[in-house]
Each structure stands twice: as C-alpha cells, then as structure tokens.
C-alpha cells in the first residue's frame, strides 16, 4: 500500500473538492478499495474518507420509489423493511454476495464501483490492460475460467463481480452522482460500461464524480422475481453466472413486463431488451424461456476455460424465469435450487 494524504470531509461539496485530483480516491466501506490498495493495484495519493457524509439514509421518493443513500451499508439495505417488502429482488441479490462481515462494511456506492476479480488485474506481476493500459491482457489465452463471455473486447475479458448491481440493472435503478460539474442522474444500464478500447474505465463516472444515491423506481416486482447465483462453492464466492429476473404478470398470467439481467458474464450486468421483449405478452413456459435464454446470450463467445458459462447462463435464465413466474424465488439460505 502506498502512502497517501488522508482527508475526512464533513459535507459533500467539500468531498467533491477534495476528490477532484487526478490521484484521488473516495473511501467508503473500504472492502474493495483497501483490498486493491494492499495489492498495489490502486495507488491513490489522496484518500478522501467519505464515511462522515450525510448519505446514510433510505428514504421514500415522491414517485413511489425509494432512494438508497450511497453510504448505507449493503447489510442495512438488504435488511431494511421497505427494501425487504418492496424490493425483495434487491435484498436477495445483496444477500447472495460476499459475507455478512463484508456486507456490514460495504456501502451501496462502493458496491457499484468495486473492481473486477480477474486474477491478472489483482496480480501486479502480470499483464493487465485494465490496471496498466497497453500492457496486454493475461487472461486472454491464460486462466480465464471466471471471465466474460459477452461484451468483451480484445483488450479485456474481465467481469463485474457485483450481485447487487445485477438486481439494480433489472430494477432499472438510477444512479445519482455529484461532481465538479454539478449533479446528474445516470440510468443504471448506462452506469457500467463495456471494456472496448478503454478497459481501465469500469463506468461512466467523470473525473471527481461521487455517487450520492441509488434511486429505485416505483415498480418493484415484489411478487415475481428471483436472484439465482451459481458459483464454485455454496456461499462466499463470486458468481460464475447469476441471473436476476423481474416479471410483471397480467391477471390472465401473461407476462406484461420482463427484465432479465445476467451477472458474472460481462464487464457490466448484462441485459438484452430483445430477449425481454420475446417474453412480452406470452404465457410463461419452457418454450419462451428457452427463446429468451438464447436471445440474451446471443453472440456469447467462450475463451476456452469459461465456455461452459454460455450453456450454464442459458439454463440459469430458464430456471430463474420459471422461479419468478411461479412466485417461488430462490432462497439464499436453502441451497436447493427452487
């Protein structure tokens, strides 16, 4: 870990000022930033501790939605009664991730901004375009069992590791940010980005911008939802593939709205509107589920070791759609897959 200047601003504008430097980093729960700093992957010269900022509330929004403060912990969010009752998909996804200790420290804003778990990104003695632009990608042709099958580039095949974000993508949340140029809201699908030719950019935050809140829209999919996560052990492991599904069913049982987001397969939570519209107006069933599963994985490319994820993702989508349609969401405690 390199040496840095430490600041603990008391309000947001002071934090934005302190965090505007080229080598500044905002520190919240620290569960990811301190980790990557210890690995010398992140080397900020100024660490701006934002834990004292007043971004620690969950509050109702006028449009019927909910605003999650950026500094509310993942645990406090998942166990908040309003989130549990109205956004159980989000609660479930959060509880599928990390460990209780990490969720107690990690914040909502930090969850959005956590870095990939790519082995090469974490190991400074190996090449990585995300860490050191132009150095090459060790994972391509290397050990890539956990890597992306969708939306990757020839520069980077890393995945975004979050579970929470997969649910937020399905819920079509908005990210509230503030920065040197003022406040703005970013649609969740625009928040994270694909690696392309700039794999070092995980998201569309501009320099010095700070996440202040996550807004959940009024439509909460509290009846027909699921978060299904497949991993190498049954807890405390990152997803090989995960699926968030949110459905709105009509009175006659047809699908009116479908949202499917995949985790563990791309540089961002993966959604394909065309796959979702295949389900619209249909009665839930194996045939349409299969069609959607194929559509959302269209164009998937394996790297060898991770090629199994393509079939696994398809099967997981079909199963998750079934769980959501039946109103039998996946438990994060009972490891039997519903």
């Amino acid at each position: 870990m390199i040496r840095f200047d430490y600041a603990r601003p008391a309000d947001v504008s002071e934090a934005v000022r302190a965090g505007s430097g080229e080598h500044a980093a905002f520190l919240a729960g620290g569960t990811n930033l301190v980790d990557v700093m210890k690995e010398n992957v992140a080397r900020p010269l100024q660490v701006v501790d934002i834990n004292r900022l007043p971004l620690t509330d969950i509050e109702a929004r006028e449009d019927g939605g909910l605003r999650l403060g950026a500094l509310v912990t993942n645990a406090a969010t998942a166990y908040d009664p309003r989130v549990q009752q109205r956004y159980p998909l989000l609660a479930s996804a959060i509880l599928a991730g990390a460990s209780p200790q990490l969720r107690n420290a990690a914040t909502n804003g930090g969850n959005l901004n956590q870095r990939t778990r790519c082995y090469y990104f974490y190991d400074v003695d190996t090449p990585c375009n995300k860490r050191n632009p132009g150095e090459g990608c060790g994972a391509i042709g290397g050990v890539n069992r956990i890597h992306a099958i969708l939306g990757a580039s020839d520069q980077c095949i890393a995945t975004h590791p979050s579970d929470m974000c997969v649910a937020l993508a399905a819920l079509e949340a908005h990210v509230q940010v503030t920065g040197p140029d003022g406040d703005r809201a970013i649609a969740f699908s625009d928040y994270h980005r694909l690696p392309g030719d700039e794999p070092w950019r995980d998201n569309t935050l501009r320099s010095g911008e700070l996440v202040t809140a996550i807004d959940l829209p009024a439509e909460n999919f509290s009846t027909h939802y699921t978060y299904l996560k497949l991993r190498d052990r049954l807890s405390y492991a990152f997803a090989l593939v995960s699926v968030a599904v949110a459905l709105r069913l009509s009175e006659d049982g047809r699908i009116e709205v479908a949202r499917i987001a995949l985790g563990g397969v791309a540089h961002k939570p993966w959604r394909v509107p065309a796959a979702e519209s295949l389900l619209q107006g249909e009665q839930p069933g194996e045939r349409v589920f299969q069609a959607a599963a194929h559509a959302i994985t269209e164009g998937a490319v394996g790297q060898g070791q991770n090629s199994f994820k393509i079939e696994l993702a398809r099967r997981a989508v079909v199963r998750a759609l079934g769980q959501a349609a039946a109103g039998t969401p996946q438990s994060q405690t009972d490891k039997r897959i519903a």
């Binding site: 082995y119 090469y120 190991d123 003695d125 190996t126 060790g138 042709g141 290397g142 050990v143 069992r145």
Partner: peptide, 10 residues
Amino acid sequence: FADKALGRWM
C-alpha cells in the same frame, strides 16, 4: 490454476 505462459499460479 497455472498460467502456462507466465509460469505462475493465478
């Protein structure tokens, strides 16, 4: 897991 090119456990 071994990276053959780098000769390194990953």
